[in-house]
Each structure stands twice: as C-alpha cells, then as structure tokens.
Design a protein around this nucleic acid. Sequence first.
DNA 1: AATGGTCGACGCGCTTTAGC
DNA 2: GCTAAAGCGCGTCGACCATT
Length: 429
Amino acid sequence: MALLEFENEEYLLSEDVHHDTRFCLLSTVGSGTQVHSARFSFGARGMSDIDNRLFEMSPEDISLLNPNTNTIALFRSRRDAHIALGIYRRVRILWTDYPRSNPWDLSFMQGLFNMATHSGLFRTQKLLERDGWKLEDGIFIRRDERMLPLYEAKMVHLFDHRFGTYEGQTQAQSNVGILPRTSPQQKADPRYRALPRYWVRKEEVADKVAERWDKGWFLGWRDITNLSNERTIICASIPKTAVGDKFLLALPPARGHLLQANLSTFVLDYCARQKISGKSFKYFLLKQLPVLAPQQYETCAPWFTDVVLEDWITSRVLELTFTAWDIASFARDLGDSGSPFVWDEERRFAMRAELDAAYFHLYGVGRDDVGYIMDSFGAFQRNDFERFARTKALILDVYDAMARAVERGEPYKTILDPPPGEGPRHPDR
DNA sequence: AATGGTCGACGCGCTTTAGC
DNA sequence: GCTAAAGCGCGTCGACCATT
C-alpha cells in the first residue's frame, strides 16, 4: 500500500496546470487484506525526489500523530517523521476526542463576527465621522453609545497585538488586503492602538460572549496561513473587542498565557508544518498538536532548582505582551499592577529565544534536531538570512546553557539584565 | 543603465459543502 | 439554520530575466 503525492512545481503534470496543484498516486488493497504499514511520500516534484522522501507508517503511528482524525501527517523526509514521532511519544496532543481529553478545558470560536454574513453590522471610520461619532482611544463615541474596533487576523503577530494597522494603508495594499506594519514610533507609544477597518456596536460584542468569557482579553490564532510563510502558527492575546472569523479564538478558563507561550514556539510550529495541506489552520489541526498540559507547569523547570516553570514562563509572556494600555487587563490577570513595558527589540529577541530554547528542552528535542528544525524554516532563511542566523544561534546558545545547568545541577542564568518581567516600563498614566 | 515582461508569493474574502 | 472545514479566485508585489 502506498500514497505518493506530487506537486506540479516542475510541471510534472503539465504546463497547462497551475504550479501549486497537487496530485497523488494511490495503491490500496481490499478490505479482506490486513496491512501492517503503508508507504508515503509528500511534496515530490519528480520521480527522483521520492527516494529521499519515502517513509513508512504503521496504523499505530498514524493514530499517535492524529488520533482524532486518523489522517496522515505530510512528512517531507524520514527524519521529519522520526523527530515528530519522538515528540508525540513524549508530549500529548492538546485535545483528544476519544477518550475525551481537554486538559486546558478549552472551547473555540470563529472570532465573534463572520466577515461575510455579519458585514451589515460593520461601520467604517468615514461613515461614523459623518454621522457625528468621535474617535477616542480607538473607540467611537456618540453620547452614551459606543462602537468597538473589529480586530482582523492580519493586525496581530506573535506577542504583538499591534502588528498591522489600517492607518496609512495605501490603495495598492488595500487592493491586496495587506496592512502597513506598525512603526517603531507607534510601538514606543503605550497609548497607541492599531486602527481597524470596521467598528461594531458594543452591545453586539457583549452579546456574543456574555455567557462564555469574562476576561478583558482574547487568545486566538490566525486561520489563514501558508507553509511558505515565515511562521505558520501566529497566535496572540488581544484586547477584548470585536473580532473577525479568520482569527480563531481559544477560550481557556485559566492560565491561557502559558498555552500562548507554547503555541508561539518554533518547535510547535515545526510540528504544525507537518500536518498542513491547505491554507487554513482549523480547530482539528490545532487540537492534534503536541502541547504541554497545564499541570506540567506546576513543577520546577528541569534547568532550575528553585523556580516553578509557570513563573519562569509567565514573566516572559508578561513583558512580551504587556506593551500597551489596551491590553492591561491581560497583565492584571497575571497579577501585575504596573504600567506597560517599553517595546525593546533586543530584549524581546532574547526573551523569545529563551522561550524557544526552553520548549525545545521540554519537548525532549536533541541538539542536532534543534538545528535541523530551525533550518527547516526555509521562508525565514530566505526572507532575512541575517535575522534567521542570529535567531538560530541564540536559541542554540541558550539551549546549551540550559543543558549545562541540568548537568551541573545549577540554576540556568537568564541572558537578560534586568531579568524578564523586570524590564523598563512606561510612566504611570 | 533603463525598461519591459513573466512568474511565483502573498493574504486573504467569499462561497460551497457537509453534518448536525 | 447553524457551525466547521475546505476550495476557489483575485490583484498586486517583488524577484528575476531578457531586451533595448
């Protein structure tokens, strides 16, 4: 039994067929025959690619990787299959259907508003200003009425709820549906808010989550993605406001920021990349990713003798996320009563490298495989090789330092000074 | 060096399909 | 009627190559 999948990038099929069309050769047997393993190959452009890509998978391994759907992961090499099977043996998936297991007690929502069917509720800045509304701190106000900004997936990025803004969008960008990135000056201003395309009545927003969510922020991830993007999983915490359906929400009753940290790592993204076949990252994919369970954060980190893992992660997520007043309720839920942290690229770079290195250890990934996994982020390498090389090098440095700490039984010492969670802050309001 | 053309990448917006 | 998943089509951008 075998499934050999090809892509038309080198026009194996025909030049008349679109280059990203994929097709496969499937050989199968009747139901009377039992098969102990099947052979697979994905992403080949010609017959000569197959040797390198071919891997075998037993029904048990297929179920280990995707127990809910029993679908096959699309490994591009035997090494990928080997690394992933190792990870899935050590780390359980986020959510299993049978037996039902949902350790984070999550529920999901496709944003709050469908961009097509709910468009009647949306109002633009131009329209609102014409009707006498005034924009104040991102919210449109007219007497006692309020219109809240509608967040779209493209406005956020990893640990950044102000990644893109409609402010200053050109006609060309508008035609393609992309946004200008928030400038360093805007990032430096803790009062700055990303400007959306639409606003929605406050009551409509409240109705959508009245019974389900009482926190002042949302955790979610981008639905639309692509293997050819620098990163595949883009998750973020955003202020509680209107949200479009392409930003999928996960509603964790407690400690959602730890889940966010886990979802923001390279090792998790690598796992996700083995399973994507299209352009959407739907619930069924997220559910079947290997994710640490909440209880695992209660013990000491292996590279520490005296700090609980939860605290180690929390200080980093807090400083990375709490960079503006509009996300203050997120910080308050983490027990922080201060003002927002200053957006500092170098500190952020170091904190994220520490998180990435930590999760590589927590996933039990060996040093060689860490390098291999980082190298698999091809679009990142191509887009900005210098930044890629710095990222990989720092993650490996921290990974090694943590390994030494474990070996010697000494605490790992952070590369940040002051330590994460104690970085420079903006003045009080 | 400047100009023109091609092609793949990008990031959706919207629709369809399936199932409850 | 609703939710979830997946498919299709689109217009620009930038990289690259060829020609003037």
